[in-house]
Simulated assay, not measured.
Amino acid sequence: MRVSKKNVFNVVFLITVFALTLYGVFHGQDMGQILGCIKQCDIRYWMISILFVVFFVEGESVIIYYMMKKVGQNHVKFLHCILYSFVGFFFSCITPSATGGQPAQIYYMKKDKISIPIATVILMIVTITYKLVLVLLGVGVMIIRPEAVMNFLSPVLYWCYLGIALNCFCVGFMLLLVFHPTMAKKILFFGLDILVKLKFVKRREYHEERLNKSMQQYSEVAVFFQANKKVVFNVIIITIVQRFLLFFVTWLVYRSFGFKEHGANLIMVLQGMISVAVDMLPLPGGMGISEQLFLQIFAPIFKSYCLPGMIVSRGLSYYTELILSAILTIVAQLTIGRRKD
C-alpha cells in the first residue's frame, strides 16, 4: 500500500503512546524482580494462549468467508480471508479507535476482485456485531451487577460506564443508519449544515456526496439484515465465541503463575469489561489505559504478581497479535492480487 502522511502519523502516534505506556508502567519498578516473577511461569499456558489469539483473529476470517459465500462470492479463498483478518487487526492495532482496519481490508479485497460495495457491507456487519457483543456484555454486567464482578470493577466504574455509553452510541447510530436511513440522513445533513455555518467544514458539495454514498452503503446493509436474519444471528454467535477466546487468555496467564483461586468465568468477564471500557477510546489498541485498568482491576487477583501478570497478558493478547498481524500483512502484500504466470 502507498505510504501516506496519515500512515506516517499513525506510526509516530503508536510509537509515542507505546513509549509513554512503557514509562508509565515501568517507571520506578525493579525490572530484575519483574523478570524473576515471569520466569517462574508455566509457559505451556502461554503456548495455548498464542493459539487462542490466532483463533480469535481467525474467528473474523470464518465470518468473512461465511458471508462471502452467502452473497455469491464463491471465488474467495479461505486463506485469503485469514489474511484479510490479520490485515484488519494490524491496522486496527496501530490506528486510533481502530479506524484503519476496514479501509485496509477493503484495499486487499479489491485486489482480490471483490467489489467495494460487497466488501463494505460485509465489514460493516462485522463491525456492528463486534461492538454489539461488547454492548451486551457491558449492559448485562451493569444490569445484573454480580457482586463478585462489581467488587473488582469498583475502582474503574467511571471507565466502564464511559465505554458502555460510547459503544451503545456507536452501535445505536450504526443501527439507526441501517434501519432508519431517512431519519439518519436528516441528522447527518443537519450536522453538516452546522459545521458549514461554523466554518469547520468547507466544500459542502463534496461532503454531501460522501454522505449520500455512505447512506447507500448502509441501505445495502439493511437489505442484507432483512434478507439474511439467520446469517446475522450466526455471525453474532461466532463473534461471541471469538471475543471470549481472547478474554480467556487472561485466565490462562493467571494459571501460568500457579494461581487457582478464581475461576475462568470471573476473569473473562473482568477482561471483557476492560475491552468495553477502552474499545472506543482514541488510542491504538487501547494502549496505556488498558494496562492501567488491568493493574487496578486485577490487583486483588494477581496480588504481588499483578504487574508481571499484566505484562504477560498484554504481551500475549495484544503485542503477539500485533506482531503476527504485521507479518501476515506483509504476506498479504506479497500474495494477494498478484498474477500467476
Rank of each mutant, 00 (worst) to 15 (best):
V156R: 03
C160R: 06
Y161S: 02
L162C: 09
G163Y: 01
G163S: 03
A165E: 10
L166W: 09
L166K: 04
N167S: 11
C168N: 06
C168R: 06
C170N: 08
G172N: 10
L175V: 13
L176H: 12
L176K: 11
L177W: 14
V178T: 14
H180M: 14
T182P: 05
T182Y: 11
M183I: 11
A184H: 08
K185Q: 14
K185H: 13
K186Y: 12
K186E: 08
I187Y: 07
I187P: 02
F189I: 13
G191S: 15
I194T: 10
I194A: 12
V196S: 03
V196I: 08
V196A: 08
K199G: 00
F200G: 12
F200A: 15
V201P: 02
V201M: 01
V201Q: 00
K202S: 13
R204M: 03
R204Y: 02
R204W: 11
Y206A: 10
H207M: 12
H207Y: 12
R210G: 01
L211G: 02
S214H: 00
Q216A: 14
Q216K: 15
S219I: 00
E220N: 14
V223K: 15
V223T: 15
F224L: 14
F224P: 03
F225A: 06
F225Y: 13
Q226P: 08
V231L: 04
V232Y: 04
F233Y: 09
F233P: 02
V235H: 03
I236A: 08
I237Q: 12
I237M: 07
I238F: 14
I238Q: 09
I238V: 13
T239N: 12
I240T: 04
I240L: 06
V241S: 10
R243M: 13
R243L: 14
F244N: 03
L245G: 00
L245Y: 00
L245H: 12
F247E: 05
F247Q: 10
F247Y: 15
F248T: 15
V249N: 00
V253A: 06
Y254G: 03
Y254H: 11
R255P: 03
K260E: 14
K260G: 05
E261N: 11
A264C: 13
L266K: 01
M268L: 04
V269F: 05
L270A: 02
Q271C: 02
M273S: 04
I274S: 04
S275K: 13
V276L: 07
A277Y: 02
V278M: 00
M280G: 02
M280F: 01
M280K: 09
L283R: 02
P284F: 10
G285C: 06
G285I: 03
G286C: 11
M287P: 06
G288D: 05
I289S: 02
S290V: 02
S290T: 05
S290L: 01
